[in-house]
Design a binder for these strands. Structure first.
Lengths: 265, 265
DNA sequence: CTCTGTGGTTCATTATTATCACCATCGGTT
DNA sequence: AACCGATGGTGATAATAATGAACCACAGAG
């Protein structure tokens, strides 16, 4: 994080669906960097198209450059379309909100959402960053991530999002071991009150986790039946996604899936 | 361009639909930067999610971070969807390939393509950067851009893409004046042989040009009839796009449109 | 009219960055 | 095998670019 490029790019993480425009002082405050420093970075990022200034207004927003880059990536390596397909299936069959996330550097980024059409449902914001330790998706990813990646995450301070969030690294390590045995991760109100999440990792061609797909349910609505139904659906879709993108889940994961399906029969 | 952040971000411009993955040495060569420098930049950009390394392979490609950023921008300020709609209409009514581009920093980036379904048609690559001086879109944009922007573009060396490319700044300035009078720009094989482009600028809420929409036709197929038909369609769509996005074309442009429609009646 | 916030600028100091040389590895040739 | 020319990647030092405090100008609130 000591490089200037990293500092500049980290400014991009402050933009979100709910705050798509930010001012100079605001960004300086949040990043902890000097106003002059931030200003220079913003100007160069505008110059490169990653950001742009709202006409007369002084606020900054994400620029057209990100649209172009995303388009290049998506035409060369279609992933959002594949994931979107699967989470659409999930939300319609389960009747709850589903979402997909991909590892982006060291953070997990939501890249697809499919909300259920029920009146009461979990609502998510596009492009949100999922905490690794408190979300089902994060835990599912961590369980299969490289050990040094896991340790880097666990060495950082783990924010308690709710009263039930796991913040003890040792407890989390034990949890990851459980997840490796079952193949899926659960987050019962550990990231947000009243939200029960179940997630499954998605793997790339090298057997490394590339992200996760998940279903988020209002906690009070979760039953044992819905739980097994959701897990089965997630396993089905992770299989579909893997085959479409040439992913190769590790044998450890495939065995867990087999155990689950056999125990149901 | 002297700042390190700009140098790092400029590396992103070497990725394209046809070359979605690039190696360290290749990027160093094209950028003219030192290998070690480029390597450090690539590592930090990977760390920030803008890039990622293809598993075991050494090549770098655009990361999931750009997908996330694009999603945030698109949900907050939907533009690609609006543009896509218009160019779909264009390509189907005219029967030729249409595309849309947005200003991204100092470059014009293709963010939407709608190819015609004819056997012989102009084919475009997604995410391509359009030269300002040799494409119809570029000229249409320049004609309404701020003078200092125009001069900055014209002060750089202008590459002759074909035998017919305009490279003399003074000739181009005169051309921009003509475009302001007519409201549309034409590029008869000035960017690519056998390609005849017609473009119209799109304006944002402040009356500044934000991009362009264009129709590209195989040059041999262009007739006076097709020409006027295309221009009329472009004017219709730029009006549609403007109203949907709250754009405000300057009076100079609106007058040119009026002159065109009256001359047809 | 002050007070406090904003976006933006300047410039001496300092810390980051660029550069060179280097190493390990791979694949094809001789 | 030995060689060659690529490749990706690494470290130390010289050179450069980043930093941060103080500074404007402006706008809205009291």
């Amino acid at each position: 994080m000591s490089t200037t490029v990293a500092k500049a790019l980290s400014l991009l993480n402050f933009f979100s669906e709910v705050e798509p425009e930010l001012g100079l002082s605001e960004l300086a405050r949040r990043s902890g960097l000097d106003k002059a420093t931030v200003h220079r970075m913003l100007v160069t990022m505008c110059d490169q198209g990653l950001l742009e200034q709202r006409g007369n207004a002084r606020l900054y927003r994400l620029g057209a450059g990100v649209l172009r880059l995303a388009r290049i990536r998506e035409t060369a390596f279609p992933m959002t379309s594949v994931y979107q397909n699967s989470i659409d299936v999930l939300s319609s069959t389960i009747g709850e909100t589903a979402h997909a996330s991909l590892i982006s550097g060291r953070i997990l980024a939501t890249i697809g959402i499919s909300e259920s059409n029920r009146g009461s449902r979990v609502s998510l914001v596009a492009g949100e960053i999922l905490p690794m330790h408190s979300t089902a998706s994060g835990l599912a990813f961590l369980a299969y991530a490289k050990p040094d990646f896991v340790e880097r995450v666990l060495s950082e301070p783990l924010k308690g999002k709710t009263a039930r969030t796991l913040t003890d690294p040792n407890v989390i390590r034990a949890r990851l071991q459980e997840i490796r045995l079952t193949g899926y991760a659960e987050a019962d109100q550990t990231n947000e009150d009243d939200v029960y999440g179940i997630a499954v990792p998605v793997f790339d061609a090298d057997g490394a986790p590339g992200g996760a797909i998940a279903v988020a349910t209002p906690a009070h609505r979760m039953t044992n039946d819905l739980r097994t139904k959701t897990i089965a659906a997630l396993f089905r879709e992770v299989e579909a996604v893997s085959s479409q993108m040439g992913g190769h889940p590790p044998s450890e994961f495939l065995q867990a899936v087999t155990r689950f399906t056999q125990s149901r029969a």
